[in-house]
Design a protein around this nucleic acid. Structure first.
Length: 937
RNA sequence: GCUCGAGUGGUGGAAUUGGUAGACACGUUGGACUUAAAAUCCAAUGAGCAGUAAUGUUCGUGCGGGUUCAAGUCCCGCCUCGAGUACCA
């Protein structure tokens, strides 16, 4: 009976499905463990071998924890709203729901064949109305909340309304839009309802405002900052411009500090935490107010170097700054207007790529230094960004390189305010090692002391204060797309109204076309059925909108990150129709114990989901503030592309060794045509694409060799390796173990099919331990002490490795174990039974099969994991390496029970030691018990 | 530019608090079995030098220093690669 992995894997996959082996209970006496994978977007291309890497690792942990006696929640679902299905719909007219359904079925089939222990009874899809009903509900909660800075948490908007009606907004510290109008309680109560709503909108956590957004004309939608890479859209690489639009936004900036603090409490990879810290971008400094001469205006700047205030010799405003048009003098206006015009035309991308050139223009206006009362010229320059801080800087050329370059370029004076600093060539930017000079009452002080003193004196005269500035912007929440969650919002007299939770979900309407309407409204505007009847509380036809009780619904949809920002809570109670999850379930499962996914979500999903969780925590909807205790970023599995070299301008391909000095163009060819020695099957290639059919091939040593390059797996590079093929040839257990064996889980690594046979033959060797002469046969006799040692050594190592997520070394340990047991001709039940269990997290199918052969009726998935016994591992003696002056010379077997002094004596008594010493007496003998003896002489 | 991470055989990668560097696997070479091949099993495999051989010996973890009886591991200075970020005041 040979190892028939196909039969075994089919049998057990259907067994698990039929018996619901991995369904988790929402209450149990066992301790809980929640292992989560970042759910996939079901793309049309299906899975390649890189995708399952994280799922395999999490599955190993899930199965291991079940053996260890935990009640394990290991769910899976689909992030099924998204752009590709929508674009397919635009091209073909096929509803995205159908595309999505097809893709999900394909994904499910591929996931099943890998033998994952997911609890599919809890599957969720973000595009299901039973799911997005609760995404809409959470949106309403965000709309009905404000952020109270005095309590440092979000609160219901009704508490704010009460405060307004009792005391106005003078003493309220809240995170809100810039400069809300001030009003008293009396004034508030006199406001019309519309006016009140307008004001409240400036405080809500989900709010509607005219915002400068990143508009991508090509995609016909706005994009969040994290969806833009190098000034172009992440998807498609289309240009992005700044544009003012009425948009929903999320006041994530309210949580900037708590999101930063929270990082300290969670066990996430340090690089990823660092990325979130940078993205939040906290900087501590001061805001300073400068009065403008001859105008009734002030310029507020933010600086991280208040200590350098006496070094200010000019100011720079962003070209977009609102004061620019106000304060520019007549003489300068032509020049300034031209400059503003010119910079506004430059795209974001130009501005970024062209960092080096210094441009700017003088406004003709002057500001007054708050302390020296000197006049300082106000310039504008595009090195100052409108979006950061106040859009204006106080320029200290001696202490900031950009200010220095600007000053040098325009011949603006530079004042040196640092003791012993040479600023003849560049600015002195080392704040930790600076001593202030030439600065009145700050002379001789350090950065820290001077900053404190300046802030104190600015506060005294009302010209500034200590401030903390964050780079994190509020997140735009509207998308002009079809395939996303509709907002539960309609408009009455231009003001947004929430639809009561009793009437959720608001379903996506049917539309004729998935493109924006002719009037430029989002695709939902194509629906004829899309208005809200306030009296009957339902969605009705658009035509009736001017009817008194029917109002227009919001036509935007939510962004991709809406549904993924809370899904981990939904798995806890996936079918609840009354709440997003019951409090019992939420309090039982609490948080994700282990979360696996790629680091590309660092500043997107992983930040937004933390924000929503913090908010839900404030509203007492969830029991924990941070939803994922530990996170692991699995590295990407890269493809090894194959390149054939075509002589430039010809139809001749050269084998790799013949390229040398020829001018060649590399052409990607399908990796499946190439064997492990880089030899290309030319006949197959010719049949593949017409461009190769007539081409000629120059061989070397009778074969055609290709070049290799490691890059991302992608269809267009023909380097995709399909897990289906590997499963067909070697089985899922081999694929699982091989992917783990390939290297550390966090590391990016190229796929290389060459080594897979080693793992496969390991599984065959394992099978053979149980099969003598082709039939199942094990011994009931007592195993040898040697075999017991091998087993317990392996248990110890593998247990530690899994706990440390070091799966590649566990696989090695298994290989050593099976090799040793084969050599010992071990086939005793008392060794093989625990070994089966040990291997089950990695290769579950073969483990289950062997377990069955051992005579067990039930699945082994909850069998207690074997525990190693120390006494099998303790050795009575050890080969000590004996070294002289650190250099190893020989080894000597010594009992471990000896004391260091006894070891020393034994070693010195040895002939070989004496031979090495050659009559000299050693200076010192260093004994590390159990490890090494070093003789220094 | 800044921040973070990583450099170990022909290849992927091991190496605990500093303690025999190269586990395990691939590949390569030789051998066994076979009419032959596949499959399987066994052995060798960092480089150099000496030796018929057992063996001995030198050099070896990106480069240059340092600490230490002992450094892949710790410290200082560089180089290269990767990731993130980019005029953030």
């Amino acid at each position: 009976m040979s190892y028939d992995f196909k039969k075994i894997e089919n049998y057990w996959q259907s067994y698990w499905a039929k018996n619901q082996t991995f369904a988790a209970e929402n209450s149990s006496k066992l301790p809980k463990y929640y292992v989560l994978d970042m759910f996939p977007y079901p793309s049309g291309a299906g899975l390649h071998v890189g995708h399952p890497l994280g799922y395999i690792a999490s599955d190993i942990v899930a199965r291991y924890k079940r053996h260890k006696g935990f009640n394990v929640l290991h769910p899976q679902g689909y992030d099924s709203f998204g752009l590709p299905a929508e674009q397919y719909a635009i091209q073909t007219g096929q509803h995205p729901a159908i595309t999505t359904e097809t893709n999900i079925n394909r994904y499910r089939q591929q996931l099943d064949q890998l033998g994952f222990s997911f609890d599919w009874s809890r599957e969720i899809r973000t595009s299901d109305s039973t799911y997005y009903k609760w995404t809409q509900w959470i949106f309403i909660q965000l709309f009905n909340a404000w952020y109270d800075l005095s309590l440092n948490k979000a609160r219901s908007i009704t508490t704010l309304i009460t405060l307004f009606s009792e005391q106005g907004n003078k003493n309220i510290t809240a995170v809100c839009d810039e400069n809300p109008p001030e009003f008293s309680a009396q004034e508030w109560n006199d406001f019309s309802e519309i006016e009140q709503q307008k004001i409240l909108l400036q405080y809500r956590l989900a709010y509607l405002s005219d915002t400068e957004v990143n508009w991508c004309a090509e995609l016909g939608t706005v994009l969040a900052n994290d969806e833009i890479i190098n000034g172009v859209s992440e998807r498609g690489g289309h240009p992005v411009i700044r544009k003012k639009m009425k948009q929903w936004s999320m006041r994530i900036s309210a949580y900037a500090d708590r999101l930063l603090q929270g990082l300290e409490k969670i066990d996430w990879p340090e690089p990823l935490k660092e990325m979130q810290r940078n993205w939040i971008g906290k900087s501590v400094g001061a805001s300073v107010v400068f009065n403008v001469t001859d105008y009734d205006a002030t310029v507020e700047v933010f600086t991280t170097r208040p200590d350098t205030l006496f070094g200010v010799t000019f100011m720079t405003l962003a070209p977009e700054h609102e004061l620019v048009s106000k304060i520019t003098t007549q003489e300068q206006s032509a020049e300034v207007n031209a400059y503003v015009e010119q910079t506004s035309k430059r795209s974001e991308r130009d501005r970024m790529t062209d960092v080096k050139s210094i441009t700017g223009v003088f406004t003709g206006a002057y500001a007054i230094h708050p302390l020296t009362k000197q006049q300082i010229p106000i310039w504008i320059g595009d090195y100052v960004l409108a979006g950061y801080g106040t859009g204006a800087v106080m320029a200290v050329p001696c202490g900031d390189q950009r200010d220095y370059d600007f000053a040098t370029h325009f011949n603006i004076p530079i004042v040196n305010i640092f003791k012993d600093a040479d600023i003849s060539k560049e600015a002195f930017t080392d704040k930790e090692n600076s001593v202030i000079a030439n600065s009145d009452f700050l002379n001789g002080l350090s950065y820290k002391e001077a900053s404190q003193k300046v802030i104190a004196s600015l506060e005294k005269i009302g010209a500034g204060k200590g401030t903390i500035n964050y780079r994190l912007r509020d997140a735009v929440f509207s998308r002009q797309r079809y395939w996303g969650e509709p907002f539960p919002v309609y408009y009455k007299e231009g003001m947004p109204q929430m639809i009561d939770r009793a009437h959720l979900p608001i379903l996506l309407p049917k539309v004729e076309k998935y493109l924006p309407t002719q009037e430029g409204a989002p695709p939902l505007g194509n629906s004829s059925q899309w208005g809200w009847d306030e009296q009957n509380n339902n969605v009705v036809s658009n035509d009736k909108i001017d009817h008194q009780t029917v109002f227009p619904l919001e036509l935007n949809t939510m962004p991709g990150w809406a549904g993924s920002s809370w899904y981990f809570n939904r798995y806890m109670d996936a079918h609840n129709t009354e709440e997003f999850a019951s409090q019992e379930a939420l309090h039982y499962w609490k948080e994700v114990d282990l979360y696996l996914g790629g680091s590309e979500h660092a500043t997107g999903h992983l930040l937004y989901s933390r924000f929503w969780q913090h908010f839900l925590y404030d509203m007492e909807q969830v029991p924990v503030e941070e939803y994922a205790k530990k996170l692991i970023n699995q590295g990407m599995i890269l493809g090894t592309s194959a390149l054939a070299y075509r002589k430039r301008g010809t139809q001749t391909f050269l084998s790799k060794g013949l390229v040398q000095d020829h001018e060649v163009d590399p052409v990607h060819v399908d990796v499946s045509f190439v064997n492990s020695s880089d030899e290309l099957d030319v006949e197959q290639l010719k049949k593949w694409q017409s461009q190769f059919a007539e081409a000629s091939f120059e061989l070397e040593e009778g074969v055609f060799r290709v070049g290799r390059e490691v890059e991302k797996m992608s269809k267009s590079k023909y380097n995709v390796v399909n897990p289906d093929d590997i499963c067909e040839q070697y089985g899922a257990d081999t694929l699982r173990m091989y992917e783990m064996f390939l290297g550390p889980i966090e590391q990016a690594k190229p796929w290389n099919t060459a080594g897979i046979s080693g793992v496969h033959s390991f599984l065959r060797k394992l099978w053979k331990l149980f099969h003598l002469n082709e039939s199942f046969e094990i011994s009931e006799e007592k195993p040898s002490r040697e075999s017991l040692k091998t087993l317990h050594k392996t248990i110890k190592k593998v247990t530690e490795d899994i706990e440390n997520f070091s799966f590649n070394t566990s696989v090695s340990s298994f290989m050593i174990c099976v090799n040793e047991l084969s050599a010992q001709q071990c086939n005793q039940r008392s060794i093989l039974e625990p070994l089966t269990c040990l291997i089950s997290p990695f290769a579950p199918h073969i483990a289950e099969e062997l377990w069955k052969l051992l005579g067990h009726q039930e699945s082994l998935s909850k069998t207690p994991y074997p525990v190693y016994e120390e006494h099998y591992l303790i050795e009575s003696s050890k080969e000590y390496p004996i070294s002289f002056n650190g250099k190893m010379r020989f080894t000597k077997k010594l009992p471990l029970s000896l004391s260091p002094k006894e070891i020393e004596n034994e070693v010195l008594a040895d002939d070989r030691t004496q031979q090495q010493l050659d009559g000299r007496t050693p200076k010192k003998v260093i004994v590390v018990p159990g490890k090494i003896v070093n003789i220094v002489g």
